[in-house]
Amino acid sequence: MTDQTPALQRPATRAARLSAIEQALLTRIVTSQSQLSQILADQGIEVTQATLSRDLDEIHATKTRLADGTVAYALGRQPEESASANPDAKTEQQMNRVLSGLVTSVAAARNLVVVHTPSGAAQYVASVIDKQPIDGVLGTIAGDDTVMVICADDDYAKQRAQWLLDVVSKG
């Protein structure tokens, strides 16, 4: 009997694949889609080139020249984007694509927004929210199927709950 169980097992879901791609780009220097595909395959995630290309676009990965001259994929927001009371259409569009199938309900409770997700999706949803420059949002806490979005005050919580509901309802 041989033990070939990988150290980290991921479900075969889109959310898990996107998370694995983000983690790979944050922890390694990835210079090509074929290299990224191999990294994912080593984790038991098989992906076509077309899907990988769409995934990279969705998480806003771009090729960037590193200090040593190497061109590699990088993640991150554009520094010129600043927080605003009403996040721009591009932010809303990205969040809609990522979150529309993952948010099942939204409610404001004092300075918190409580977001329910399918089991196992809360941490991914929290991560997506945390990466956006959203005025009045201080951060998130995620469990298995619930995210608490901590807002600066009760009014922001009400505004952000309605905004998030509107964003995930588009499409």
Results as ranks from 00 to 15, higher is better:
S100T: 10
A61Y: 07
C151Q: 11
R54M: 04
V113Y: 07
V125L: 13
V137L: 08
V115G: 01
A152S: 02
A157D: 06
Q123P: 13
L138N: 09
A41K: 00
N86F: 15
A122C: 02
Q132T: 13
E81C: 10
D88R: 06
S82T: 15
N111Y: 03
Q123S: 09
A122L: 01
A152Q: 03
C151F: 06
A126C: 02
A74R: 00
V47T: 13
R110L: 11
E58H: 14
S105K: 02
T104I: 12
D153K: 09
L99K: 01
A157Y: 00
Q43G: 05
A67M: 11
N86V: 15
Q49S: 13
P118T: 05
V149D: 01
E81L: 13
A85I: 13
V147Y: 02
I150P: 10
K131L: 04
A41Q: 03
D55R: 06
H60P: 03
A61V: 04
T51V: 14
C151P: 14
G143C: 00
V47E: 10
A142T: 03
S84R: 10
A142Q: 04
A126S: 07
A74Y: 00
E80H: 14
D135Q: 09
A50F: 06
E58Q: 14
I59H: 15
M95A: 07
V147K: 04
R110H: 11
K63D: 08
D68G: 07
